[in-house]
């Protein structure tokens, strides 16, 4: 139990340092990448490339195991269908991302750096996530009752 908490903390820390090193905690730089039709900064593609190169190996190794090295069950998403929720959600996320240059990880890192606008962004983001929960509960899709479908969220 404690070891998984330490590794969770270290993962968050390393992720945040990676975002700082790569420049992706800076919305100006992210927008430089998203400005494909202007003066384009390809850096974000290199960040993704570096991360995925390592990730490919890691997930391949993980996929061959019955449980994690700390004895935890592997909680990997199993769904492969591409549904409307996935697509509309992702399309909407891209709009929000492009408006300011923040996605959730960098916003939390910038919050930790004491940026007031990042604090506001994160507060609004949590409200947005809360709205999702409310709408889900109203919708009564049954997903909430078990929580099973969301254990494997990305």
């Amino acid at each position: 139990m404690h070891r998984t908490l330490i590794s969770a903390f270290v993962t968050g820390l390393l992720f945040g340092i990676g975002l700082l090193v790569s420049g992706m905690a800076n919305p100006e730089k992210v927008l430089g990448f998203l400005d494909l039709f202007g003066n384009w900064d390809p850096s974000l593609a290199f960040v993704m490339g570096g991360a995925i190169a390592v990730g490919l190996v890691a997930f391949r190794l993980a996929g061959q195991r019955r449980q994690s090295l700390l004895g935890e069950p592997l909680r990997l998403p199993a769904r492969r269908d591409i549904d409307t929720r996935l697509m509309l959600g992702s399309l909407g996320f891209g709009v929000g991302w492009g408006l300011v240059g923040f996605c959730p990880g960098p916003a939390l890192v910038a919050l930790g750096a004491g940026e007031l606008k990042a604090v506001l962004f994160v507060a609004a983001m949590v409200v947005g996530m809360g709205l999702f929960e409310l709408l889900e509960r109203r919708g009564g899709s049954g997903a909430i009752a078990t929580g099973a479908t969301h254990k494997v969220d990305n």
Binding site: G89, L91, G92, F93, L99, A107
Partner: peptide, 12 residues
């Protein structure tokens, strides 16, 4: 943008 990112990333 924060609101939109919050709700959309959960839907997506």
């Amino acid at each position: 943008a924060g609101l939109l990112v919050g709700i959309s990333t959960r839907y997506g």
